[in-house]
Design a protein around this nucleic acid. Structure first.
Length: 402
RNA sequence: GCUCCCGUCGUCUAGAGGCCUAGGACACGGCCCUCUCAAGGCUGUAACACGAGUUCGAAUCUCGUCGGGAGCGCCA
């Protein structure tokens, strides 16, 4: 069987490391199996989706080298397809119009909650054949009433849900637009997804999706629900604890491979190995080895790994990175030998490229004041060995700037 | 409230009944190397949530308790 995975973020918030880790696992698994990796943007909620978020997803993945083999696809561009599947389901009697009003639904929910029951739609419109005047209907999927759904999960094992716990979910809003759970099913089916790898917050909607797949006579893919990433405090990832745009790590001077290396070790391991190159990751990764428990984000280890990767990256490559990092703080240099000198002196002392740039900025500032070519040359020859001998010279740099 | 998931050092993890006196890594402490800071080497502190049961033997299997998380939307 050929492996097809996908990463399907919704552009409602900025892509952060939690999403990146999920994308990484999908990408790795596809690469490991010689399969295909698809990027799909789930933007059916047009009110909350932003272009900015879409941009961060694409830029972030490009920066990290998690390039899709197909896509990005946008769900908003597939509405015609959803509509025709909706019609199919309706015609087959596997879905129906529901004329309940929001007030009615709210009342139902409140009553159920008051009776300490799980709030669910009771299916009262299954038998309502006549439209109600003045009510724009939604479309609901007719979920099986009895029996159970077994999810064979690659990381959790066998998870069983009773159909009696599920209700008839809305698959199209009253304005006709399809909803998330339905679009996912149609897309996964159309795109031939063989392995659905996603956050374990989705484990609960999996039985519904399987039921819909079954109703559409589509094959059921393998599922792998990977654990979430928590903030440093062990609580859910929040703005204060790492839920920042993935591009911030680029700004802060982390190497893509270092970030990926850090992320892959969250919930996955391969013996005692800590440091992985991209190729090693691909060779060693298997979705079946992923852990079940959530893990907390640890900035110290990320920094350590970044330094380890810097020590292993060719000098010329790091010099290029250093140059763009310097540009961020308004310093420009094309002097390759100077840049490489700084890299040589700093790669074992700085944890990030940003730190490297800051530690050596005095160096480039002074340097720029010399426009005499010979003087520049002289200064370079002088100062590079100095830097190497003296080490990071951070304290010196601070004095210098004071 | 109901359903589902999860629970090994502070953190990331190894561990699929005896190899566990629970191993590795980050962080932290000590020592070595060293003109400084790093890097590197050696070393120390530190965990099987709790309670029953199965077994000659349990971190590993079963049940319960506690704790945490997710879902229960015309959000994704």
């Amino acid at each position: 069987m050929s492996v097809v995975t996908r990463f399907a973020p919704s552009p409602t918030g900025l892509l952060h490391i939690g999403g990146v880790r999920t994308a990484l696992f999908s990408w790795l698994y596809a690469r490991h199996c010689g399969g295909k990796f698809i990027l799909r943007i789930e933007d059916t909620d047009q009110d909350r989706s932003t272009d900015q978020a879409v941009r961060v997803i694409i830029e972030g993945m490009t920066w990290l080298g998690l390039t899709p083999d197909e896509g990005p696809y946008f769900q908003t561009q597939r509405f015609d397809r959803y509509r025709s599947v909706l019609a199919e389901l309706l015609a087959a009697g596997k879905a129906y119009y529901c004329y309940c009003t929001k007030a009615e639904l709210d009342a139902m929910r409140e009553a159920q909650l008051a009776a300490k029951q799980k709030p669910r739609y009771d299916g009262r419109c299954r038998e309502r054949l006549e439209p109600r005047a003045g009510v724009a209907p939604v479309i609901r999927f007719k979920n099986p009433l009895a029996g159970e759904v077994v999810v064979q999960d690659q990381v959790h094992g066998r998870v069983t849900f009773q159909n009696s716990e599920l209700d008839d979910l809305i698959i199209a809003r009253s304005d006709g637009s399809p909803t998330y759970n339905f679009c996912v099913v149609v897309d996964d089916m159309d795109m031939g997804i063989s392995h659905v790898i996603r956050g374990d917050d989705h484990l609960n909607n999996t039985p519904r999706q399987i039921n819909m797949l079954l109703a559409l006579n589509a094959p059921v893919p393998a599922y792998a629900h990977v654990p979430m990433i928590l903030g440093t405090d062990g609580a859910k990832l929040s703005k204060r604890h790492g839920a920042v745009s993935v591009l911030q790590y680029q700004e802060e001077g982390y190497l893509p491979d270092a970030l990926l290396n850090y992320l892959v070790r969250l919930g996955w391991s391969h013996g005692d190995q800590e440091i992985f190159s991209r190729e090693q990751m691909i060779a060693a990764f298997d979705i079946k080895d992923v852990n079940k428990a959530a893990s907390a984000f640890n900035p110290d280890k990320l920094q350590w790994l970044n330094q380890q990767h810097m020590m292993r990256t060719p000098v010329a490559m790091l010099a290029t990175e250093l140059r763009s990092q310097l540009a961020r703080i308004g310093l420009h240099s094309d002097d390759q030998s100077l840049l490489e000198g700084v890299v040589n002196a700093q790669r074992e002392r700085a944890k990030t490229l940003q730190e490297m740039a800051k530690n050596s900025q005095f160096f480039f500032q002074d340097f720029d004041q010399y426009d005499d070519k010979a003087a520049r040359k002289h200064l370079t020859a002088e100062v590079v060995p100095l830097l190497q001998a003296v080490g990071e010279g951070l304290a010196a740099a601070e004095d210098w700037n004071a």
